[in-house]
Design a protein around this nucleic acid. Structure first.
Length: 646
RNA sequence: GCCGUUGUAGCUCAGGGGUAGAGCACUUCCUUGGUAAGGAAGAGGUCAGGGGUUCAAAUCCCCUCAAUGGCUCCA
């Protein structure tokens, strides 16, 4: 006979134990080992994360969470946000609170400071207060509360933001959490007490619209990060410093890849010779892959008649927020800087009648487009106002959509793999079902397109996340997202299924039935844009590009000017083997020349002096590795060719 | 676009109401050196731009521009 007052707790390893009803995760941990109990900061009960001190009433699967679990960290940081709030309330009486969630790395709290204002200079003071409160080891106490009562509490406190949040909550599901003198509306969970927060760093301060809506008031958002050990905070800060060194804006300047000029204009990058070199190599790499995959190159102008974009719908959708029309001496004649290549490609499609036998047709172009991005959005090369898409449009029959889509996925993955981009996520970007007026086209087309994407991604075994509201206005997308050095997410490759533009442009083909049919369009860009892709490439490689992409692959370093002539000769011979580089003719010692080649990340150094000249050889030194010994030019060229393979 | 921060030599930065500083880079000279910085001298700035306060502004205030951290947006 089962004891009614006991419940069965199943642990992740499958083992089961009996505990009295109402047992807490902390008690379970204690029953296993004291060491474990010290480290437990939350628990996963079934599918929910719970406070370790919350009573478990039913048979459950329980996973004890520590700092090493993602959910454990999230709980830790969420509790840290409450600690920040407590400190702010103590230091700035009357402050009102928005929301304070955990992030992937750290947490923030949005606050309305009222009369007060704070800046980064106040961080030490706030951090000190947080530490002081942490040391009090105040417990996080969960208090279920009725809605009426909660409303009364926050009315009394005068916090209209919490009242607004309460408005959307259902009676019976509301809880408050209290630690020390601070009480917050919060569904939890939280760590046992503030004492385990040992290391605190507030990182930055920014404005953020209440509830992320532009029409709302702007609150002050304070970001921070905390750790259970000071050492971990130190390590984190050191890691951030390292990440900053990989910032493409820093490296772009150091390695002379690109620049910006106030005089040229905001968000309009200038490609310097080394950057242009890199870019050209990437372009020819993709051109080659695209030729193999049956793409046909096309070229279109940088401007197009406004009518073109009225037809495509771009003018209607983005017209007022883009670069404004270019006028001609003729009255009423207007042109737009090209914001997208697709309308031009549609017109190319229309230059001749198409048969079902011709399809799919794949037009590819490195097309430079101009978009008036909001000034606050511009960011290095990742968000600019003039950029080049590795664009192509596939016009195909409806029955070809899926196979074409699959081929494009292959191409994108080939590009990513070739460049060592293994840390990406595939995102299916669908329409926001709540906000359908943001998009053009019939529901049935959208459904077909969305189904095609979902099926194709599944067929390729891609691990995807789905985001509602992220679709383009004419169709859903499969986006390949990557992170930059500082952890921000960017869209690189994108594949989009589009039923709208073929209709707007009245695109047709003649079917086997001798009837007119409408093709489907697939927009795709494996890099996304050359600018953004290169930005991420710079950060991923920390400027140490694969050999085949390096702007300078070799630096020829004569020991002294006596060997200048031999160095030149070696240079020309290596050039004949398609090896790029330069001779360092400066009047410097070899140590200096090596150092400079090392810091500018040249993959190979060729050292030539008395010995080499006599033997007709060259000494090879590899960046970061050192002397590789001497070879003949032909030997080196062979070795190099193998190394430089994509 | 919004909230905040920043803007001093080519770069990285110090200074902070009383005639502008360092290191690196650059130029010249010396040095001809064998695997991560040889030495010396020199040149270089309307202190982002404009307006104001002041006997005096790079420094304080306002505006503009740009960069930057976020938010919003992102075809």
């Amino acid at each position: 006979m089962k004891d009614e007052s006991e419940i069965i707790i199943t642990l992740p390893d499958g083992s089961q134990r009996n505990y009295p009803k109402g047992v807490t995760a902390m008690q379970i941990a204690l029953s296993i080992s004291e060491g474990l109990a010290r480290n437990v900061i939350a628990a996963k009960v079934g599918n929910e994360v719970w406070d370790p001190g919350r009573a478990i009433e039913e048979n459950s699967l329980v996973k004890l969470l520590t700092w090493n679990d993602t959910d454990g960290k999230a709980t830790f940081w969420h509790s840290s946000a409450h600690l920040l709030a407590e400190a702010l309330e103590a230091l700035y009486p009357g402050v009102k609170f928005g929301t304070g969630p955990s992030l992937e790395r750290g947490f923030y709290y949005d606050v309305d400071l009222g009369e007060h204002s704070i800046s980064q200079d106040d961080f030490p003071k706030i951090e000190a207060k947080m530490l002081e409160l942490a040391r009090q080891k105040n417990e996080y106490v969960r208090q279920p509360i009725g809605k009426e009562e909660a409303i009364a509490y926050f009315k009394e406190k005068g916090d209209e933001y919490k009242l607004e949040l309460l408005d959307g909550l259902e009676d019976g599901s509301i809880t408050l959490y209290q630690q020390g003198n601070f009480t917050d509306l919060c569904k939890g969970p939280h760590i046992p007490n503030t004492g385990i927060i040992k290391a605190i760093k507030l990182t930055n301060i920014a404005g953020a619209y209440w509830r992320n809506k532009q029409e709302n008031k702007m609150l002050t958002r304070i970001y921070g990060i905390t750790f259970p050990k000071q050492k971990e905070l130190d390590e984190h800060l050191a890691l951030m410093e390292e990440a900053k060194k990989r910032d493409h804006r820093r490296l772009g300047k150091d390695l002379e890849l690109f620049a910006f000029s106030e005089k040229v204009g905001q968000g309009l990058p200038l490609w310097l010779p080394k950057g242009a070199m890199l870019r050209e190599r990437l372009e020819s790499f993709l051109r080659k892959a695209q030729t193999r995959a049956g793409y046909l190159p096309v070229v279109t102008p940088h401007i197009g008649s406004k009518e073109l974009y009225v037809t495509s719908g771009h003018w209607d959708k983005y017209g007022k927020d883009s670069f404004q029309p270019i006028k001609t001496p003729n009255i009423g004649e207007e042109y737009l800087l090209k914001p997208m290549n697709c309308p031009h490609h549609c017109e190319i499609y229309k230059t001749s009648p198409r048969s079902y036998k011709d399809l799919p047709i794949r037009f590819a172009e490195f097309g430079t487009v101009y978009r008036y991005e909001q000034s606050g959005e511009l960011h290095g090369l990742t968000r600019v106002r003039g950029f080049t898409q590795d664009d192509a449009h596939i016009f195909c029959r409806p029955d070809q959509v899926k196979s074409e889509f699959l081929k494009v996925i292959d191409l994108v993955l080939y590009v990513f793999n070739s460049l060592g981009f293994d840390d990406y996520s595939a995102q299916i970007s669908l329409r926001d079902p709540e906000n359908k007026q943001k998009y053009i086209g019939a529901d049935s087309d959208w459904e077909k397109a969305e189904t095609a994407i979902i099926e194709a991604a599944a067929e390729k075994g891609l691990e995807t996340v789905t985001e509602l509201g992220e679709a383009a206005f004419y169709g859903p997308k499969l986006d390949f997202m990557v992170r930059d050095a500082l952890g921000r997410k960017w869209q690189l490759g994108t594949i989009q299924v589009d039923y709208q533009l073929p209709q707007r442009f009245q695109l047709e083909y003649t079917g086997s039935d001798n009837q007119k049919h409408r093709p489907v369009m697939i927009h795709r860009a494996p890099f996304g844009s050359m600018e953004r892709f290169i930005a991420i490439l710079i950060e991923n490689t920390a400027g140490q590009f694969p050999l085949w992409l390096s702007p300078d692959q070799i630096a020829i370093l004569p020991i002294s000017e006596k060997y200048a002539e031999y160095a030149e000769e070696v240079f020309f011979q290596l050039q004949d083997h398609d090896i790029r580089g330069f001779v360092d003719h400066r009047d410097e010692k070899i140590g200096r020349k090596i150092r400079d080649a090392e810091v500018t990340k040249v993959p190979f150094m060729i050292i030539v002096g008395e010995k080499e000249m006599e033997e007709g050889k060259i000494s090879i030194r590899r960046k970061g590795e050192g002397d590789l010994g001497s070879l003949t030019i032909a030997e080196f060229a062979d070795f190099f060719k193998k190394e430089a393979k994509v």
